[in-house]
């Protein structure tokens, strides 16, 4: 059992507040992704859990044991680093076995575990090599194998795929997901790549300016962003936003059209994902600015009520810049955000 609890964790570097009052519980064997732009504090949070950084305030618990005062080696964790940190002076075998040797396990046990994890990561033929003789992808596999060989309760990964080329990243992503699912460990994975986050995570914690703005399943984060920031960050292209003017009793006027919205009296913004829009006889009046064929779809950038608005439309649709379209949003996919608090309102 390795449930991770982060309680009121804050971190200051001098006068800079890197993390504000973080509270997060990660269930045993859950795959949690910390997602955010660079500088949002996601790596700092991971390093606090690892013990490589000390929090200014708050507590970290793993498996019902408070560990934030312990050195990294007593926390029951293993880590995969962004630059792999595969020791250059040791062979692949000794790299994978490094943690086991530190635990003073008998030689045959080290050998058994190293060979098993090497096989799992398909690097059994590289055991005698040094890291200088490996490709980036192979080094990455060694770094993951070294972590898995520890049979840790918790595995921490700091942008582990960001130094690989696009094709390799895709391949490793799928493999990592499979291997970790079988290993029964709790995983925390830091990335700035939302596609990676979506495809790997059981739950995503979206971070922004040192805070967790939403922690939910990938579908929930995508469909029901808790904040305008999440809506604008997740999705490629992200959600469209349009100003809305109040028309009586939960009705709002958006670019001249009336839609059912929240009853709140405050100002709200209308939001819709580009793929939840279709051309129709009535709808938002849009002037086409740019048409980008993406193969399966067309990405159409338009001007709606003076605001940039993107729609993903059927690829057989005949449109060209300058055309006027009526774009009808799928009404159950419309989301509303409070203009003053930026929070989602129903």
């Amino acid at each position: 059992m390795a449930e991770i609890q982060i309680k009121n964790v804050a971190k200051r570097f001098g006068s800079y507040q890197a993390l504000h009052d973080i509270n997060l519980t990660i269930a045993d064997q859950e795959f949690m992704v910390l997602l955010g732009a660079s500088g949002c504090g996601k790596s700092t949070l991971l390093r606090i859990i690892a013990g490589l950084e000390t929090q200014t305030e708050g507590e970290v618990w793993i498996g019902g044991r408070r560990i934030d005062h312990l050195p990294p080696r007593e926390r029951g964790i293993a880590m995969v680093f962004q630059n792999y940190a595969v020791f250059p002076h040791l062979t692949v075998f000794e790299n994978i076995g490094f943690g086991l040797r530190m635990q003073k396990l008998p030689n045959d046990e080290v050998k058994r575990r190293v060979e098993r994890t090497a096989e799992l990561m398909h690097i059994e033929q590289l055991l005698g090599r040094y890291s200088g003789e490996l490709s980036g992808g192979q080094r990455q596999r060694v770094a993951v194998a070294r972590a898995l060989a520890m049979e840790p309760d918790v595995i921490l990964m700091d942008e582990p795929l960001s130094n690989l080329d696009a094709l390799l990243r895709l391949e490793m992503r799928a493999e990592l997901k499979g291997v970790l699912a079988e290993s029964n460990t709790t995983a925390i994975y830091v990335t700035h790549d939302q596609v990676e986050a979506m495809s790997l995570a059981d739950r995503i914690s979206v971070m922004h300016e040192g805070r967790i703005v939403q922690a939910a399943t990938p579908v929930e984060v995508y469909r029901n962003p808790a904040e305008r920031f999440v809506a604008g960050f997740i999705g490629n292209p992200p959600m469209n936003f349009l100003p809305a003017a109040s028309a009586d009793g939960g009705k709002w006027q958006v670019a001249g059209e009336i839609y059912d919205g929240p009853a709140a009296a405050n100002g709200v913004e209308f939001a819709i994902r580009p793929e939840d829009i279709a051309p129709a006889d009535t709808g938002l009046p849009a002037k086409v600015r740019l048409v980008e064929p993406l193969g399966a779809h067309l990405l159409v950038t338009c001007d709606v009520d003076g605001t940039m608005f993107r729609a993903i439309l059927e690829s057989d649709l005949q449109v060209k810049p300058g055309d006027m379209l009526k774009l009808a949003p799928q009404t159950d996919r419309i989301r509303w955000f409070d203009s003053s608090t930026s929070l989602a309102v129903a």
Binding site: G51, I77, M79, F81, F98, G99, R146
Partner: peptide, 29 residues
Amino acid sequence: IPKEYYEAAEVFGASPWKRFWRITLPLLR
């Protein structure tokens, strides 16, 4: 010597003394 090697050694259980013997000295050759 890149700092990450020390961090990795620390996470994988090396005490300060072991880090000196197993990381610093060999990489300082």
